[in-house]
Simulated scan of single mutants.
Amino acid sequence: MHILLRASLLAAALAHPPAGLSQPAASAGYPDPARVIRLVVPAPPGGPGDVVARALARELTASLKSAIVVENKPGGASIPGALEVARAPADGYTLLLTLNTTHTQVPHLYAKAPFDPFADFTPVAQVYRGSSVLVAHPSLPARNLAEAIALSRTQAVAFASPSPGTTGHLYIEALNADHGARFIHVPYKGSNPAVQDLLAGHVQLLFDSPATAVPHVRSGRLKALAATGSTRLASLPDLPTAKEQGFAGFESSTWLGVFGPAGLPPPIVATLNREISQAVNASQLREQFSAMGVELVGTSPEAFRDVIRKDHDEWGRLIKRINLKLD
């Protein structure tokens, strides 16, 4: 389904080319509309970050009157893609759209942090907020999280994650450490290949974004066992949260946000923040992603920085408690 969504987004962009591409005009904060803006996504095509990035790029291309190209830089726990943006000139023509993992989890997972999430980047706007969905292959004889844990104690249960150090991986390790589960972690290079192997039955479980999980649950190709977050998903209202099922520590939300390199000039930050906020509040995008259980948000840079700090500290405590390192 996520592949079809990407195709539909591309078709819409081709059918309605942005007005500013043929005859670019200056936009406040972007004095050279002829230059292409690179939006780096440190994940493979087809995943939730990629889908949101391409929808956002289409809207911003029209409003900024500058072409925006999404560049997928997967692998390495998002580090190579993030570093490419951190080392780029702070002129607004190289941006990063990434999941919370990059800034709130990765710095805690290495003895020497690969970057400083606060000193090396400029927060621009939070774009997306949502819970994760624990989905299972229909062949797994478990109806909820407790039954999946019990099953893992008696037989091998392969639990996929988009890559080591991601939110899904941390949840797996927390279940093993805190609740006596014996899940076998199977890391992938991105959400899309993990979902494909889950659909094929090569693995049994995955914490996934609603953007890619909900369509498969509705079609019956996967079944949902739990949702993270503090409240139930509007797109799956009958699905209890992990907390409701008696599992504390799964209330954190995932998010996507846009960043620039450190020192991004305030006029460019203001322009980007304004245009991103307008784009994610447009009814068309909100309805499109709300149907998949994704809440688009447009925050100020200051509010976004507060979210990053809070989540950075919370995930740091969890990673320390489960004693997880990637080096």
Rank of each mutant, 00 (worst) to 15 (best):
H2D: 11
H2V: 08
L5N: 07
A13Q: 09
A19Y: 07
L21P: 02
R38K: 13
L39E: 05
V41W: 09
G46K: 05
P48T: 13
V51Q: 15
V52W: 08
R54W: 03
R54S: 00
R54C: 15
A62N: 14
S63Y: 10
L64C: 14
S66L: 15
V70I: 04
V70K: 07
N72A: 05
K73P: 03
S78K: 13
S78Q: 13
P80M: 04
G81A: 13
A82M: 00
R87A: 14
D91M: 12
L97Q: 09
T104L: 02
V106I: 06
H108S: 01
Y110P: 15
P114D: 14
D120F: 09
Y128C: 02
L134N: 09
H137K: 13
P138L: 04
R143V: 07
R143Q: 11
L145T: 01
V157W: 06
V157E: 01
P162S: 12
G165L: 04
T166C: 12
I172R: 12
H179G: 02
H179A: 03
A181Q: 01
V186H: 10
V186A: 01
P187F: 12
Y188W: 06
N192I: 04
A194W: 11
D197R: 10
D197E: 13
D208Y: 04
D208F: 08
S209R: 07
S209T: 14
H216C: 09
H216T: 08
G220R: 08
G220Y: 10
L222T: 01
L225V: 06
T231Y: 07
S235R: 07
L236C: 02
P240R: 05
T241V: 02
A242Q: 00
A248D: 12
L256T: 02
G257Q: 13
A270C: 02
A270F: 05
T271A: 15
N273K: 06
R274F: 01
E275Q: 14
I276M: 01
A279T: 12
V280D: 02
N281G: 15
S283C: 03
R286D: 14
Q288Y: 10
F289R: 03
S290A: 15
L296K: 02
S300G: 07
F304N: 12
D306R: 10
K310E: 14
D311P: 05
H312M: 00
H312Y: 15
W315K: 11
W315C: 09
R321S: 15
